[in-house]
């Protein structure tokens, strides 16, 4: 374990992520609305030792009721539409929606038209777009941190 921790310092220095924390936090609820599982595998590694988004106050939470941000992957399928809307309805205000990956953004979608509803922004107001097929953990991390920095309402200390 000690070897790994020593390596991490070196590996993290190579990343183009800020060194400092933000003094704020963002609770994220992920919903897979019809992805190929590629975005999930990359998103999972943002919690791994290399990126460790928790150190910036970014955490994946278990319920939309605890979440500031709904992070949606995949083109929205007809079978996932209602569950996605239910998750959004359960979120407290202020709430934001991020579309993660090209499918969620409606790019290069491959599907039978009747089986999908469309892009995430066709059914929810999207505040953050993270393109890529799939976006890398570094790209996901940078986009989420950028949201944290530019959206004062979402991340202001308790009022």
């Amino acid at each position: 374990m000690f070897t790994l921790l020593r390596d991490l310092r070196r590996l993290r220095r190579q990343l183009d992520l800020p060194a400092s924390t933000r003094g704020r936090s963002l609770a994220i609820r992920h919903v897979d609305a019809g992805s190929c599982n590629g975005c999930e595998h990359e998103l999972t590694l943002t919690s791994g030792p290399h990126y460790d988004l928790q150190r910036y106050g970014l955490g994946l939470v278990a319920s939309p009721r605890h979440a500031d941000l709904l992070l949606v992957t995949g083109t929205v399928t007809t079978r996932m539409r209602d569950s996605l809307l239910t998750a959004y309805a359960a979120m407290p205000e202020p709430r934001r929606v991020a579309a993660l990956g090209n499918c969620a953004l409606g790019c290069d979608v491959i599907a039978q038209p009747g089986e999908i509803v469309g892009r995430v922004e066709d059914i929810l107001p999207v505040d953050l777009r993270i393109p890529g097929c799939p976006p890398s953990p570094a790209q996901i991390a940078a986009a989420l941190l950028e949201l944290l920095d530019r959206d004062p309402e979402l991340t202001s200390p308790g009022t």
């Binding site: 897979d32 019809g34 399928t77 079978r79 599907a111 009747g114």
Partner: peptide
């Protein structure tokens, strides 16, 4: 399962 059925084969 099949919440993520996208009809890839028919397409």
């Amino acid at each position: 399962l099949f919440y993520k059925h996208r009809g890839l084969e028919r397409a």
